[in-house]
């Protein structure tokens, strides 16, 4: 077949044809992947919640509600229930003061306000330094975030030693550690003010 000419009619026709084909293909793939994409996002959230509160039987995502922080925005709170009894709350908190800005967390509280566990959702901290806030330790070899487990923010001020608090900062990553504390504090303040405990 000979190559078609660059007349206006041919140009418009072929571009239209290609655009229609492209849109059809994309629409199809979008419909196909929509379900799995939503599912992955939901699973990721549920995994984070599972990590930070005791075992639960409900679907915390369905019971999610918002609580104001008192700073003009709101945080998502996911209640975890075992049967009828509330076993904990996962609060999605954040800070803008990380070494590279934004960090988001899932902070899990027991109903009385004790920190159960914390999971870092997104961060851009320096590999090998600030990233040490992420891993889960073992009893023999505790990691940075393990020192928060089982502590109640009312009698465990969320401050690094440099600022006169009890938290051991990550070596060479004081700013990251400070931001971590701030994010957890924000979750606790919101949780407390919401009258949850």
């Amino acid at each position: 077949m000979a190559k078609i000419q660059s007349s206006l009619k041919n140009m418009v026709l072929s571009l239209t044809l290609i655009s229609v084909g492209a849109s059809a293909a994309l629409g199809f793939v979008y419909e196909m992947t929509k379900g799995p994409i939503e599912l992955t996002a939901l699973n990721k959230k549920l995994d984070a919640i599972k990590q930070v509160v005791p075992e639960f039987t409900n679907n915390p995502n369905d019971d999610m509600f918002m609580l104001p922080t008192g700073e003009g925005d709101s945080l998502e709170v996911y209640p975890a229930r075992s049967g009828e009894e509330v076993v904990g709350y996962a609060v999605r908190s954040y800070t803008n003061n990380g070494f590279s800005g934004y960090i988001s967390f899932m902070v899990g509280f027991l109903p009385d306000g004790t920190i159960y566990n914390i999971s870092v959702l997104e961060h851009k901290e320096t590999p090998g330094l600030g990233t040490k806030m992420v891993p889960e330790g073992t009893p023999e070899k505790p990691e940075f975030k393990d020192q928060f487990k089982g502590k109640h923010p009312a009698d465990f001020p969320l401050k690094v030693r440099k600022d006169g608090g009890p938290v051991d900062a990550i070596t060479a990553a004081t700013i990251s550690s400070r931001a971590f504390c701030e994010g957890v504090q924000r979750a606790y303040n919101t949780f407390e003010k919401g009258g949850m405990k």
């Binding site: 190559k3 078609i4 571009l15 655009s19 994309l26």
Partner: peptide, 28 residues
């Protein structure tokens, strides 16, 4: 042979962008 010479670059870009979006969605 179906793409006139003068509009080949935009046509190529649309084709490429389509495949990129497919990869984007599938990987997500």
């Amino acid at each position: 042979n179906l793409i006139p010479d003068k509009v080949r670059i935009p046509a190529f870009i649309v084709v490429i962008a389509t495949f990129v979006t497919i990869v984007d969605l599938v990987m997500n």
